[in-house]
Amino acid sequence: MTARSRSLSVVYLMVALLIAVSMFPFLWMLVSSFKRLNELYTVPPTWIPETATWSNYLNVLLESNVPRYFLNSLVISAGSTAIALVLAILASYGFARFRFRGKSLSISLIIVGQLLPTAAIIVPLYVVLNYLGLLNTYLGLILAYLILTLPLSVFMLISYFKGIPVELEEAAIVDGASRLGVLLRITLPLSLPGVVAVVVYAFVTTWNEFIFALCFAMDSSTKTLPIGLAEFTTEFHTDWGAVMAASVIMTVPIAILFLAMQRLFVGGLTAGATKG
């Protein structure tokens, strides 16, 4: 009993340490976002803002491009996620249920797609997007983001589809349904957790993406939130209070989305990543 409770208190101690380390930057971000400028630049730093202020948030929401960037991020992430989902569902179904010539070659091509260092393809991708007139457009970024999300999404869904008994589909096929119909009406509804995992994964990945957006988005019509945040720290009006407020604004939606979906998401991801 004592040994057990001792080991339990060790566990609690370690968990407390873990939470402290994981959460501290968020705490500090939140505290800083409510500080006035003078207080941010004070030694020693204060733990609780002396005169808490919303002005940093007002600055970010009313006087910067952040609301527009928020919209851009939303459109681009949603668009890219939707396309990735459709393509991944089709491809994974093909891989999970069929044998065909060139199958293993196709799979290895997708693996290569996942292994590819993005830094190595920014330059040609820039040239290609420029050639197609897609630089600085929503569509350009939406397509570029498929590179990042499609391969892992395919692997996540393959493992889900494989887990669904073929017998269920065969009955429907005997009744004369097409394969696409079977996929849409039988397999997909049963794979909902996998689909949710893909959606969350693709959305989070594109929402957070920085380097493609930095290279392919040139003005406020297409720049995304991460670029907005980077601009806050480089343009003339650098202001740590506003930077921290903008960080909070960027973190909250993604954290909520994630915490709401995390059970499904983690299940789907572990399935895909360990097989990919």
């Binding site: 400028l37 003078n38 630049y41 004070t42 480089t234 003339f236 009006h237 650098t238």
Partner: peptide, 23 residues
């Protein structure tokens, strides 16, 4: 420190002189 940081430090009283434009 870049130009903006210098302005902040100046406002905070950490530096007493720096170079910048009228903006």
């Amino acid at each position: 420190n870049d130009g903006t940081a210098l302005r902040r430090l100046f406002i905070a009283g950490t530096i007493a002189q720096y170079q910048s434009g009228q903006f």
